[in-house]
Design a protein around this nucleic acid. Structure first.
Lengths: 264, 264
DNA sequence: CGAAAAGTTGAACTGAATCAATGCCGGTGG
DNA sequence: CCACCGGCATTGATTCAGTTCAACTTTTCG
């Protein structure tokens, strides 16, 4: 059986060397650890019964005590809150492959909401399924721990950005982050990165007004640094943009990854 | 032996009902779980061999791969980074009782530095000691997990503050947060909360200039909302300040605490 | 095709930064 | 004990990055 599986796997690899799996959760976790066929099967089964969700729909409401974890398979979702002045602050993006609130067991009521930004494919992982997944698959448990560390590093990077970067630096830094994260789950094709966000979404992420975001994007386009077409983004002068954003991809793999290739 | 211990404990409680322990780590974790005498002894032993550290000293440098966790017993430390424009951004405060980087085992190189702000008393907990502490004391393990959730909630609150609150709201929100956290480790006396920070430190925390922080503080004093004397802070109209900061202490106990009293 | 959502533009405004000088206080050494 | 020094706090004047408001255009999508 083991032999059979690896033959199958390598056959797939020969026909389509890039797609070890279409499941973004598997792709993401494989950046951190090596998964066995059993691990992958468990992850596939957890991702079954996904359903499409419209944009701007709450997946977990603020104050709720979540009974299952949210797994994003397609589209962009986010954590967010509303301030009393009416403005919305996006706290984190949930991209394909992201599994929200792994520590369900310890979690009390939510201090923020989780909702879709674009149309999404979402799977719900019940608490018991999550617990047994972690208990029975040490590789997966470790990969989830490592990706949680990356999430925390991302939150820190957002604090730094909001605290001490200019508006243009924030925009470009966010684009660099999204590119790396989407690449990690195999969703970047020929430099084009899906970006199903409105300028208002970007503004609520970056602590800016939508008007100003609009002008910043125009400026980047005029200078030939980015292309924005049909909900996709292409960074033209990647090195230049990284320099102006002071972006280092290291924090996104915050961990002792074995594969050196990951460090870029 | 068990009986003896509990007699001792209640005797201490009778003479000094407030001080279940002077150790801020124990005080903090006891807000989340009930600790046995063995748990407490283990935590005391981990806190032994603390040493004084001057202000503005790095405890962990950016890029380092830490071999032990940092435990703050007295004073204020922080996580921070330098942006290339020269400004410093403080990412999190480490207050007495805070144990930095519990997931040492999974951690790669640091994407930020950890340093003292004021004079501090610091203990270093070697990796093996930390691992065995967690393995042998499930209560402590759970309490550390819960306090990590509170840390994450705090980071999210900082993102919200930097993203969409006015300068004055940020200052007052930070003061409310510090008051609650210092109260949790028994360091607030008659409403006075230690605040061994300069206005530059506050500015680097809040994404403001030191000049502006100075003016905001003067304004708060003039309006009779705070007192600032000798590295201590007193919030006079706590309800008013909480309202203007849109502060809810709930996120700081982000978890299923059993004690209702914690929810305020 | 028509309505709603998203993007674009200009003008006026403002919160906060910057720059630069001054005052204060606590520690240190003579 | 006093004089000096360095870090921190305070003040005023000026500038600027980014907001707000409001109108207008373009795109999307049922």
């Amino acid at each position: 059986m083991r032999a059979l599986h690896s033959i199958t796997a390598s056959a797939i690899r020969l026909t389509d060397p890039e797609l070890t799996s279409r499941n973004p959760l598997i792709r993401k976790l494989e950046r951190f650890v090596h998964l066995t066929e059993e691990d992958r099967a468990a992850l596939e089964s957890v991702s079954a019964q996904a359903r499409a969700v419209d944009p701007h729909i709450d997946l977990i409401r603020e104050g709720a005590v979540p009974e299952d974890a949210v797994l994003v398979l397609e589209g962009f979702a986010c954590r967010y809150t509303h301030c009393q002045n009416g403005s919305r602050q996006i706290i984190a993006y949930l991209l394909p492959g992201d599994l929200c609130d792994v520590d369900l067991a310890d979690l009390g009521s939510m201090d923020h909401a989780v909702g879709t930004l674009s149309r999404c494919i979402i799977a719900r992982v019940p608490r018991e399924a999550l617990v047994s997944l972690i208990a029975q698959h040490p590789n997966i448990a470790r990969a989830l721990r490592l990706s949680k560390l990356a999430e925390e590093a991302t939150a820190r990077a957002w604090i730094v950005g909001l605290g001490c970067r200019s508006a243009q630096e924030r925009v470009t830094h966010l684009f660099c982050e999204l590119l790396v994260r989407m690449e990690a789950v195999g969703l970047v094709r020929e430099g084009w990165c899906p970006l199903p966000l409105t300028q208002v979404d970007l503004a609520d992420t970056l602590g800016l007004s939508n008007v100003h975001v609009n002008r910043l994007l125009q400026d980047l386009r005029r200078r030939g640094l980015i292309l924005l077409r049909g909900r996709s983004l292409k960074l033209l002068d990647l090195e230049g943009i990284r320099a102006m954003a002071e972006f280092s991809p290291r924090y996104l793999h915050a961990a002792s990854c074995d594969s050196g290739e990951l460090l870029l």
